[in-house]
Computed example of a mutant assay.
Amino acid sequence: MGVSMREVAAAAGVSVGTVSNVLNSPGKVAESTVARVQAAIDELGFVRNDAARQLRAGRSRSVGLVVLDVGNPFFTDIARAAERRAAEHDLTVLLGTSDDDPARERSYVDAFDEQRVFGLLVSPVGDDLDRLAVIRDRGTPVVLVDRDGSGTGFDSVAVDDVAGGRLAVDHLLSAGRRRIAFVGGPASLRQVHDRLLGARAAVDDVTDASLEIIETPALSVLAGRAVGERVQRRDPADRPDAVFCANDLLAMGMLQALTMLGDVRVPDDVALVGYDDIDFAASAVVALTSVRQPTARIGSTAVDLLLAAVDAGSRRPPENIMFQPTLVVRASTG
C-alpha cells in the first residue's frame, strides 16, 4: 500500500494541509518547511495520487491535443510549442492524431473528456463540431487549432489559408507561368479547400491562365510522388508549367518523382510551391519555395486561449485569432 500524505505530514512534523501546499503551491510555504516536507517525501517514497487529486478538483492538469497528422512536421512543431507554453503553467500535453479520420478524432476526444482534461486543442477533420460543443458547454474549454472558429462559438487560432493560396499562385503567375496545377486532398479538409480558393482567385485575375485540380487521398509524400509520376509521364505540351501543392509533404513527393524518376527539370520545366515551410523544405534537392505558417505562435497562442477561457469561464466571448502567412522564395520557382 502506498504512503499517504498523513504519513508524510507526521514525518515532517507539519499538517496535511501544509504537505498539500508544498505539492501544489510551494510559494505559499517557507523554504525551510518545503525542504523538510520534501525530505520526508523522499525518505518515505511518497508518490502523489494524481487521479484522486483530479477527482477532487474536477479537472486534471493535462491538455488534450488532437491533430490531423502527427507525422507532418507542421503539426509536430505546433505540438512542441503548445507543450512549451503549457509547461510554463504546470500543464502537460497529451497528443493524439486523427489521421484525417472523423471516427478516430471522436475516439480521442471522448478519451480525453473521460480523463477530465484541463481543456482540448483540436484540429477538426470536418465541419461537424457538435461533439466538441457538448464538451465545451459542460465547462471544458475547447480551442480549434489551424481552423478559423468565427461564427462557431469556439476560440480558435488559424492562418489565413485563402491568402496563402493566393500568395503561392500570384508568385507563379508573376514568374510567367500560366498552366497551373493545384495538388491536394482530401477536398473535405478545410485547409485544402481554403488554399484552393486562394489559388482560384489568383488564376481568375489573369485571362490566359488556367488551373488544373489534382485531388489526392492524403497530404503525404507518397501521395505527392504518385502525382509527380503521372505528371512526368505526360507529353511536355500537356504538363502544367507550375504546381502549387497544398502542403510541403506533397511538394517533396512531387519533387522526388519529377527530378529523380524522369527528365523534368524543376523549376525550368515545372515550377513548384509547397505550403507550411517545414524544415525539410530548405534542404530539399531543389530548395522548395513555400508558404510559411507561424507554427510556434499557433501552438503557444492555442494554449493562451485555453487559459483565458478557464480564467474567465462563460463570461468571456470566444476569440478568433487569424495569422497571415508569408511566402519564402527558393530555387524550386527560380
Score class of each variant (00 low, 15 high):
278 I>T: 12
296 A>P: 02
166 R>Q: 07
246 A>D: 01
147 R>K: 06
71 G>I: 06
307 L>G: 09
165 G>F: 07
316 R>Q: 12
110 D>E: 15
334 G>C: 00
197 L>F: 12
330 R>G: 11
162 V>E: 13
74 F>W: 02
91 L>V: 15
252 M>H: 15
26 P>K: 03
19 V>T: 13
306 L>F: 08
285 V>H: 09
323 F>L: 01
116 R>H: 08
319 E>A: 15
148 D>C: 01
266 V>W: 01
1 M>D: 11
180 I>Y: 06
302 A>C: 10
7 E>T: 14
310 V>A: 06
228 G>E: 00
5 M>Q: 09
62 S>Q: 12
257 A>W: 02
325 P>D: 05
8 V>P: 00
51 A>L: 15
189 L>A: 06
281 A>S: 14
302 A>K: 05
69 D>L: 05
18 T>Q: 13
150 S>H: 14
254 M>K: 04
62 S>L: 14
254 M>T: 11
80 R>I: 15
133 A>Y: 02
127 D>T: 14
115 Q>N: 12
51 A>T: 12
96 G>S: 15
142 V>M: 05
155 D>E: 05
98 S>E: 12
4 S>K: 08
234 R>F: 06
148 D>T: 06
223 A>H: 00
154 F>N: 03
146 D>E: 09
43 E>N: 08
106 R>D: 10
325 P>N: 08
227 V>D: 04
91 L>Y: 07
74 F>Y: 15
147 R>M: 03
308 A>S: 14
271 A>Y: 05
3 V>S: 05
47 V>C: 00
185 G>F: 04
275 Y>P: 15
128 D>S: 10
247 N>V: 11
53 R>T: 10
169 V>Q: 10
94 L>C: 12
299 G>A: 04
93 V>C: 13
299 G>F: 04
200 R>V: 11
17 G>V: 08
316 R>K: 02
1 M>I: 12
1 M>R: 10
68 L>G: 10
270 V>L: 05
57 A>T: 09
217 P>H: 03
305 L>R: 08
77 D>W: 04
115 Q>E: 07
163 A>D: 13
295 T>C: 09
269 D>K: 10
333 T>L: 00
88 E>T: 11
164 G>L: 04
228 G>W: 06
197 L>T: 11
192 V>Q: 03
257 A>L: 10
119 G>I: 04
318 P>D: 07
140 T>P: 12
39 A>S: 14
242 A>W: 01
320 N>A: 09
172 L>W: 08
300 S>T: 14
195 R>T: 09
267 P>S: 02
17 G>Y: 12
33 T>C: 00
269 D>C: 03
213 I>C: 09
138 R>G: 12
